[in-house]
Design a protein around this nucleic acid. Sequence first.
DNA 1: ACCGGCGAGTCATACGTATTACTTGATGCG
DNA 2: CGCATCAAGTAATACGTATGACTCGCCGGT
Lengths: 333, 333
Amino acid sequence: MHATGGPAARPTSRDVARAAGVSQSTVSLVLGGKWTGRVSPATAAVVQDAAGRLGYRPNRAARSLRLGTARTVLFLVPSIVPFFGAVYDGAARVAARHGFGVVLYPWPDGAGPAGSPFAASEEAIDGVLVSSVGPDVPAGFGGLPLVLLDSDPAGPVPTVAFAVEDGMRAVVAHLAALGHRRFGHVAAALDQWTFHARGAALAAAVDALPGGSWTRAAAALDVAAARDAAGALLDGPSRPTALVCDDDVMAAGAYKAARLRGLAVPGDVSVTGFDDEQLATALEPELTTVRLPAGDLGARGMTALLDLLDGRRPASVALPGALVVRASTAPPR
Amino acid sequence: MHATGGPAARPTSRDVARAAGVSQSTVSLVLGGKWTGRVSPATAAVVQDAAGRLGYRPNRAARSLRLGTARTVLFLVPSIVPFFGAVYDGAARVAARHGFGVVLYPWPDGAGPAGSPFAASEEAIDGVLVSSVGPDVPAGFGGLPLVLLDSDPAGPVPTVAFAVEDGMRAVVAHLAALGHRRFGHVAAALDQWTFHARGAALAAAVDALPGGSWTRAAAALDVAAARDAAGALLDGPSRPTALVCDDDVMAAGAYKAARLRGLAVPGDVSVTGFDDEQLATALEPELTTVRLPAGDLGARGMTALLDLLDGRRPASVALPGALVVRASTAPPR
DNA sequence: ACCGGCGAGTCATACGTATTACTTGATGCG
DNA sequence: CGCATCAAGTAATACGTATGACTCGCCGGT
């Protein structure tokens, strides 16, 4: 009982030192872990005991100031959706293993580093991970080490991407094997590399197909916009027998467009998605789509960033996806 | 041209002072904004110009250390889904207006403050916002100011919640008006206040209904689990004519269970959701559900937390939701 | 002529940590 | 015995900022 109501403030290393009867430097030495040969095991034990008893935890601001490092990286994502949650998990797991924290920041419009949300956490970070950016790659990020995810691996910045071309090629091959020749591409009107790549890969794959042809309609990444875009394709001069969508959400819109016209999926028109989100199995019929290893993306990206922080220069890589065939694709009528 | 390749390191306030020909304190005063009557406008202009030219931005760690405050709050969410993205946006908007940043942290299992992900960012924060927790409310959060979101407003901690009871009552009233009397509750098996409240509200509303009866099946918050739970209800001794689901995702599972049994929605069985996520309009038929003002939740929660930081004690409030009637509800056969 | 007061800055310091350089007493060795 | 070595720890310092205490002219009033 401290009748005086002593200071209940958070203990500092000096408080621990006082409690252990040693100097502050000794505390720092012991708790820093590098004390072999400098402090006797007995004293170290006393210090550790005192620290535990007081519930001491080092002040992060002071440590950052002293070391010039925060052991924290910033993770910028275009939106708060489960896909990026999975990416985050992968990244955070690797980071934790190295004593780093990961701060998640939604960064919708791809505004520059001066964008106000970023400015808020500007200085307490050692590196940046940015996911799903467009072709105007931020070459450097305020001078901070930078790794891109799900972006153009051919750029100057180290990047971990998906092998989008392979995924799209697998989609087209699957549909072609079923007998489809006329494709409609329901494209996402977002300026992100991954969507540019999906579009280019589709075009290349269909063009390489004897008798293959395709049309395209772009829309915002939501159900209603995708429904209208898919409708425009279905109403076009030569109706596609398969709608290839840039994303599972857009595929939901394609379903709606088909139903509105009395067309059955997959009887009258096949539909494919991309990403394999939870939605894919919520839809009826369940959606044929491409599963992307989101956790791996985060893990590999964080590994690359940590390499960069250590002065090594990581190479860009592309992770393979996998076609998941469900019930939304069938031979054309 | 500095032929010597001078230090390209980030400039400090002392560098600015040197460039402006004043002392470091003057720089700090000017840039701090509180210089009226202490510094002449002419000098202030010179300082601001120099700071701009050098691209000076204050070191956050040093400022935190000096002020004992980080102007940053931690926002813990159970999962990375669009709903919490909207909550975050509301919170971040209010925070930015007061010069605060918001750090988002996924906190899946509701582990204690000692949970490793939290520990990583432990010290650079002034307060905590926690969303959607269970009954074992963390009374204090390592001594940090705390506000709960979407949690029990009757607890000791200031809380901003939704008026879940009203929402669920509206659902039951809507279905009752259509003629439904036998309800099935597809419940989320998560230990969060909001789901407990939804269940209790449903029971109360149906029990108050003459001739009303209900059964319940709980499941994890995913499509497949909900499908099985809903199936169990539909296969029960007295088949419900309406399935009330704790969440839109579970409603998708209810759709599947109905289809598997050859039952039409809403012809043979009505289905309702909760939250009004994007999924609600992706489903066929579109889902009758309860829209919750997620952005407001974040904004009000942040306002309450800022009040708390200022020494005021905010009151707990509950925000009203709104029933959105779509195509998944109809009179029973 | 002297002093109070004020405008315009500067000096010095503290925040809490990590680390380098130093002290101190004991021991080993020739 | 004298000196180097060593173990065990401590004193001092720097990181970059914000701010209370202080200085230094200068002007107005009596």
